[in-house]
Design a protein around this nucleic acid. Structure first.
Lengths: 125, 125
DNA sequence: TTAATATATGGACATCCATATATCTAAATG
DNA sequence: CATTTAGATATATGGATGTCCATATATTAA
């Protein structure tokens, strides 16, 4: 069971918050996309994603060399509602808008490919 | 300026979250009311309220021996929206419902009095 | 003035947390 | 097999955080 205070503690870090809001908007992203969007080191991103996975805020899915993360499907309604409200209210702020921009601007491993497409695709930058 | 991650860190503690959601619903409460509603020690409540005041999430107002707290009027829209959404989604949970119950059940220093009424009123339990 | 009540704060303590560095696994490729 | 790349993890460290106890301050009552 997800305790509200525990949930908010997961949002209480800029790196995690940016990852979550990005995933809330885009649905599913791999670690390298998040690394590029947030312009942070891969170990740092990975560590925060692991924390969010352990806390059951995110779910991961491996596809070849890449690991894709998305909001956990079992998140309670109140948590989804808070994430939605936060994303709506913060999407205008430069910090978060910049993330989405760096994401769309880069032609890297988009999710939604078939297995064959993913296996044959170029590696992300 | 209120940083989103900083704001969520303020919500990342059960005591503070319960205080904030109660104040979000009730508008203004004094320390003794919160102490009674949450069934926690006065120093503990006072410390967390001081933190929320320092972080500009709460505003305090002294009236005689009592200090009343309320959501800070300068809170940005996105922060108010998140608090609203959280309160809507969590009001059903026993943890938070119990707080409101203990508050309504006690006939203690209600806010909204005039100065004269407050000065002449009985002390809170 | 003395007592009582409401609130705040200082100090001590244990715990948690974010970060950096380095290492490790697994997969893809040649 | 060797190499490269994506990603995870182990460890150490500095710093923040929550809680408790005791005490301090402020206001009101007697």
């Amino acid at each position: 069971m997800l305790l509200p205070a525990h949930f908010f503690k997961c949002l209480a870090d800029e790196t995690r918050l940016r990852c979550l809001l990005l995933l809330q908007r885009r649905g599913e992203l791999c670690v390298c996309e998040l690394t590029q969007a947030l312009q942070m080191s891969q170990p740092k991103i990975s560590r925060h994603l692991a924390l969010l996975r352990t806390c059951r805020l995110l779910q991961d899915r491996r596809q070849g060399a890449w690991v894709y993360y998305q909001l956990h499907p079992d998140l309670p309604d109140w948590a989804l509602a808070v994430l939605n409200t936060a994303a709506d209210g913060l999407v205008g702020q430069p910090m978060f808008a910049g993330d989405a921009g760096r994401l769309t601007g880069a032609a890297v491993c988009p999710s939604g490919w078939t297995d064959d497409e993913a296996l044959g695709a170029l590696k992300p930058a």
